[in-house]
């Protein structure tokens, strides 16, 4: 690691003020940031530890949902009985990610802001527009098995690694932030992430010093919730493809559906196309497949990751079948 100044945050305001310098970073759980600092992919000169701040509570919101403090650990969130009963898809998604040890440290805010696991982002001897703007994208013509198939650009095909965020996308979560000047704002989770375009190093809409305070879950949508993750080993691996579904069945028809994919884009990929295809559709594998096809109409593979397109469709089919009780 490069040398840095370590600061324990005294208050929200002082933390945000400290972190407005371009080479400063907030640190909470540290499970992603410290890994990247050891490899000098991240080289902050100033770390602002938000551990002393509150932000570790899960509270009922006025609208009947939950407000999750940014420092709530993944474990605490997954184990919270309110989440388990009302938002089981979120519990499942969190528990599908990483390991128990990492979930005990990783936080809600940090999880959303985790950086890609693209092998070429991690190998500092290789071109990577995200790590070194303008150097090129080694993944495009390389071993891109884990990379994205939708929503990305010719400058970067990195996939977002979060499971938690996929469930949050399906739940219409909102991110509440505060900036150094005290201004707060609420960002729909889908709008938190910037498409890579030709600036893949800028990953979110957050400004320097802007801190995620909390994530708000609206009241739980009706229907069955399910998170399904497919990976290269049975546990402790990033998704090849994952899917969060919330689906309501009425007789043999789908009345309402929400679909979000993980592992296929730069962000948790909410699919309006799949949802539109599902509403009113018969509860059959054939219509689930059609929804998957709709979701992936604009997807394209880059060689080694071509399989993600059929796999995403099939995983959606499996999840919807399980959630609706189709044998």
């Amino acid at each position: 690691m490069k040398p840095f100044r370590y600061e324990r945050a005294g208050s929200l305001a002082s933390a945000c003020a400290s972190a407005t310098e371009p080479t400063a970073k907030f640190i909470a759980g540290g499970t992603n940031l410290l890994d990247l600092m050891k490899l000098q992919i991240e080289t902050p000169t100033h770390l602002v530890d938000i551990g002393p701040l509150p932000l570790a509570e899960i509270e009922e919101s006025a609208e009947g949902g939950l407000r999750i403090g940014a420092r709530v650990t993944n474990s605490a969130l997954a184990a919270d009985m309110r989440v388990r009963r009302r938002y089981p898809v979120l519990s499942q998604a969190i528990l599908a990610g990483a390991s128990a040890q990492l979930r005990n440290k990783a936080t809600t805010g940090g999880n959303l802001l985790q950086r890609t696991r693209c092998s070429y982002f991690y190998d500092t001897t290789k071109p990577c527009n995200k790590r070194m703007p303008g150097s090129g994208c080694a993944a495009l013509g390389g071993l891109n098995r884990m990379n994205a198939v939708i929503g990305v650009s010719s400058d970067c095909i990195a996939a977002h690694g979060s499971d938690m965020a996929v469930a949050m996308a399906a739940l219409d979560a909102r991110v509440e932030t505060v900036a150094a000047d005290g201004v707060t704002r609420t960002i729909p989770i889908d709008a938190l992430y910037r498409p890579p375009g030709n600036t893949p190093h800028i990953e979110t809409v957050l400004a320097p010093g802007e801190l995620i305070q909390s994530v708000v879950l609206p009241p739980p949508p009706p229907g069955q919730q399910l998170y399904r993750k497919v990976r290269d080993r049975a546990s402790f691996a990033f998704a090849l493809v994952s899917v969060a579904v919330v689906v309501t069945r009425e007789d043999d028809r789908v009345r309402a559906a929400r679909v979000a994919f993980g592992g296929i884009s730069y962000k948790p990929w909410r699919s309006a196309e799949a949802e539109a295809a599902l509403i009113g559709a018969t509860v059959t594998r054939a219509s689930f497949d059609a929804a998957g096809r709709a979701a992936l109409r604009d997807a394209r593979g880059y060689g080694y990751n071509d399989f993600k397109i059929p796999l995403a469709r099939r995983t959606l089919r499996a999840a919807l079948a399980d959630a609706t009780g189709v044998i």
Binding site: R117, S119, Y122, D123, A234, S235
Partner: peptide, 18 residues
């Protein structure tokens, strides 16, 4: 590049307990 792509235990998978 003449290098191995998988350079850590998150990308070079060995069996885990599950």
């Amino acid at each position: 590049y003449g290098s191995f792509v998988n350079q850590d235990l998150a990308s070079y998978h060995v069996a885990v307990n599950a």
